[in-house]
Amino acid sequence: MPEIVTDEVLWAAAATVPDPEMPPLTIADLGILRSVERRGDSVVVTITPTYSGCPAVDMIESGVIDAVVDAGVAVDRIRVERVLAPAWTTDWITDDGRRKLAESGISPPRTLADASGQPGSVSVTLSGRRRQPIGDISCPQCGSKTVTELSRFSSTACKSLYRCESCREPFDHVKEL
């Protein structure tokens, strides 16, 4: 590949790929893009799925290949690897990603309490040990914290559906994982 293609250029290229289900966000914003590295003559891009059954992974993979080709790498030198561990968490969504979500009318996920954090941050319920989100969900339209969950699942597996009781608008919330 041309010398001009630096590691930074490669990362920046892969990082431009939009998420097919939430196009304002890139795969870098979402934390799906884990690494871009050179191995010998090849470029290896590592991605991780948000959910086991995420149907967008194939599309993301072809998007990554197109983007790295556009950066000047031959298509037969590009490999996309999918990893499951460590498992994706909404805590990997960047600040930029959270801002873009809110601007698109989607309530960003809250951050999760550290498992080893203060007492009470991990609740042991019948569904096992689970890191609890910190703070309240607020309406992305008016900012009100008076919201009601309408459905645990929404337009995609990673979102749940809420209604704001102040402005009465329904909205999607990216659920904490």
Partner: peptide, 19 residues
Amino acid sequence: EEDIAVANVGLDHLGQARH
């Protein structure tokens, strides 16, 4: 809402099956 929920739960199971 339940229709979407059942599809999403099914999709999770399908994804786990594929892994």
